[in-house]
Amino acid sequence: MDLVVRLRGAVALTGRFPALSGADLTVQRGEVVSVVGANGAGKTTLLRLLAGLVPASSGEAVVLGIDLCQDPAAVRRRVGLLGHAPSLYDDLTAWENVRFALRSARVPAELGPAALERVGITGRLAATPVGGLSAGQRRRVALAVLVARSPELWLLDEPHAALDPAARSLVSELVEEAARGGAAVVFSSHEPAVALASSDRQAVMAGGRVLDLRPGGRRAPLAAVGEGGSHVA
C-alpha cells in the first residue's frame, strides 16, 4: 500500500478553536477521495493541513512520507492546492500568472502554454489580465498551474463550485487524469452525490472529525459529470 496521506487524531487550530479535532484519514497513490460535510465541518482546514499551510497542533499528520510538523515546506513543494479563491494576481495576465507560479515552484515555464491550452485558456484569454476574467475562467487558470506542476497530491477545495457544466466536466477529467497518472486527489464538495460518483471513497466530516468513510463509484470510467450528479456520456 503506497500511502500519500496518513492522519491519525490530527488536531488543527483556527485561532484558539480546533477546526480539526482528531481527524483520521488515509489516502493512497492513485486514489480519489471526496470530503463532504456541512459548513464549518473542517473540510477546508483538512485540505490546508494536508497542503502544509495549517500546522497540526497534535496527532499524526504525514504526507508523502514527510511529517507535516517537521517539514511543511518539503510537503508544499510536492502538493498542489486549489483553494476557494485562486492564487492569482488580478493585474497579471493568465499567462503571466501561470509563468510566475511555475517559476516560483521551480517548474519549467515552458509547460505553461500547454497547460493553459488543456484548460481552455487560449489566444486572447491567455493575454487578458485575470481581473477581467470570469470566476470560472480564473479557476481554469489556477487549474492550469496544477496541470503544469503535476503535484503528487492534488487538493481541491470545492472545485466544482460556481462552474458551468463544461468547466465541471473539465475538473472531473483533470482529477481522473491526475489519479490515473499516479497522483492522489482529495477534494471537498457540497454535493455528496456528485462527489461520491467521481471518487473512490468519500469522507463525511462533522465537528472537525471524519465520521464515516463510504465507498465511491469512481472505478467506472468517468467521461464527464454533469450538474446534479448524473454522468454525461
Binding site: R48, A51, G52, L53, A73, R76, R77, V79, G80, L81, G83, H84, A85, P86, S87, L88, Y89, D90, A101, S104, A105, R106
Partner: peptide, 13 residues
C-alpha cells in the same frame, strides 16, 4: 488578495 498569500507560501519560494 485571498489566495495569493497562500500561493506564495505553498510555491516553495
Amino acid at each position: 488578495g485571498e489566495g495569493t498569500r497562500d500561493g506564495l507560501r505553498s510555491s516553495g519560494i
